[in-house]
Amino acid sequence: MTGMKKNCAAGGYGLVREILRNLSKDFSVEFRTRFALNVSIAFAVTATVSVSLTAGGVPFPSLVQSILLWMIIFFSAMNGLSHIFVREEDQATALFLRITMSADSIFISKFIYNQSFMMIVLAVVTPLFLFFLQVKVILISYFVLTILSGGLSIAAGATILAAMVAKAGGKGSLFSILSFPLLLPVLWVSIFATKNSLDGARPADYNSLVFLLAFSGFISAISFLLFRFVWIED
């Protein structure tokens, strides 16, 4: 009985436990099938190799390299980031999830999942790209920070859109159509920051990184507030 009372008044601790439970569930389900991850990685490899192949070993100018890198990152991520919500609708488990935990825990855990997913995609795409396209990075730490914060922003913005797309029937291309314009500022800033890191033009201040982090924080906060409306049907 004491246990039940505790749960009826689930406080901050209850939230953390719910998030951990949902994360462990999502990781087990996703990594048992690895569908979304496989599609994303396969896309990234195919795109990188085919760009490198058509270039025929001639290195591109740094701006073109940055654009290509971010396009490949963006569309690889688009192939997988919506799966975490679309799967719940496809396998009709959304109601089970809905009655098991609060909307807040669900959003936070899916958000964390998508961030980890994005990090895996980045960890595969970036070295592959550097290898195949003969990219020389001059400012390595600035480059790495740009890639990480750009990825953070993309995953942050895409999570709430994934929830919307899942409720709209999980139509694949809709997700890219919704995400692209909203994330264009992120891509734009990331592309120029990446170009600078390739050229070795050290910025006096880290404005673009600040912009990316501010954007992530802002869009995560708005998404968190909007999520309960999108998720809870009544």
């Binding site: 919307m164 919704l178 800033v189 404005n207 869009i219 909007l226 409306f229």
Partner: peptide, 22 residues
């Protein structure tokens, strides 16, 4: 409606902030 709100909220970032930081 959620998408419209999200769109409205991100517009200032694009229209004012990004060019100014940049």
């Amino acid at each position: 409606s959620s998408y419209l709100i999200l769109a409205m909220m991100t517009l200032p970032f694009f229209v004012f902030l990004a060019p100014r930081i940049y």
